[in-house]
Simulated scan of single mutants.
Amino acid sequence: MLHVQAGQGDMSQKESFGIHDAAYRVGRSELLAWLNELLQISYTKVEQCANGAAYCQIMDAIYPGEVPMKRVIFDAKLEHDCVKNYKVLQAIFEKRNISKHVEVEKLIKAKPLDNLEMLQWCKRFFDLNYAGNEYNPIERRQGKASPAGKVASSAAPKVMEKKSSPVMKKPPLTVNTKDQSPSTPMRQKPIRPASAGLQRSPVPDASSRMANMTADFSHLEEQLHASQTTNSRLKEELQEMQLSVDTLEKERDFYFHKLREIEVLCLQCEEGAESKDTIVSKTLAILYAKENETPPTDFLDEPADVNAEGLSEDARHAQQDEGDEGAGEQEQVREEEEYRQEEEHEKME
């Protein structure tokens, strides 16, 4: 059974220690040895306390019967199961007016420094408040597996002495009355520190650390390969888009050149330099000309049935009105084309 003699005092005095207290300089090996001795478990890392079950059972040892151990999930691995354990811990803190702030989100993530600080606080709080009552951790867990995944093999609880200060106690002096006379000085037994009986938890060897580093390196390599694949795919898409843009620009310039040539022909038609039928034939030649092909402008003969002098006055006026309307329509088409080109240029920028 655990047996610790606790000092007298109220709750505020037993809880009043800050971050600069000597308790926060206790190493993880000593903490794990103390925890394994107290709860009869086999922890090897402070991160195994992340699910909160060990913290709950430490409070159960300090305040017997006040922690509902049936609600504690010792093999909790999922986040919501761990949160349930911390709710049990929060309930005992509120019941006992303990003002310790517990950052549950950091502890659940199994960060070593956060759990080391929490375990240091629990040990110091245990040293100040444990009343020396007998405590059987296996019986309190009702035979459930410990958070480390194993049930301690020894059914009988062990006895552990609680140190209220780092000063070592001297054992009583003994005298051999049979072999020594009264004048013979008494021989003192060597002093053993109180922590000498505690078993040190095994430290991970170099091979296990190397295995962890190899696994992390493999994971980073996979992430790098995935990033390189994504980068290559994005580069290909960018090249395809650039090719599409170049093609669109060429088509835009090609058709703009056609419109410009047709515009020049229309202006010649207005000036009377070319006949209407000639303008129509040249326009068709320009429209059906392929890329990088200069449309012929002199392959058509002058039409034989054109005789402007034989037209009546009304026909000439009608032809002039028709030419004016065509010129207005061409000007409107040209303005619309320029406006469309400006919009495309702004979008491309």
Rank of each mutant, 00 (worst) to 15 (best):
Q8T: 13
Q13M: 12
S16A: 15
Q48W: 04
G52Q: 05
K77E: 14
E79K: 09
D81G: 01
V83K: 09
R96N: 15
I98K: 04
S99C: 01
S99I: 02
V102T: 05
E105C: 05
E105Q: 13
L113Y: 03
L119P: 04
R124K: 11
D127F: 03
N129S: 11
E134Q: 07
A145E: 06
S146D: 13
V167L: 00
P171M: 03
P171V: 03
L173I: 08
T184E: 13
P185A: 12
R187A: 06
K189G: 09
I191Q: 05
R192T: 11
A194R: 01
G197L: 01
R200G: 08
R209Q: 15
A211F: 10
A211L: 13
A211Q: 14
T214H: 15
S218C: 08
S232N: 10
L234I: 01
K235W: 04
E237T: 03
E237A: 05
M241H: 12
Q242N: 05
S244T: 09
K250L: 12
E251P: 00
F256S: 15
F256W: 12
R260N: 15
R260C: 14
C266W: 05
Q268K: 12
E270Y: 07
I279A: 04
T283G: 04
L287C: 10
Y288H: 10
Y288S: 06
P296Q: 03
D301F: 03
D305Y: 06
E313W: 03
D321L: 05
E325Y: 01
Q330T: 14
V333T: 15
E338P: 00
R340L: 10
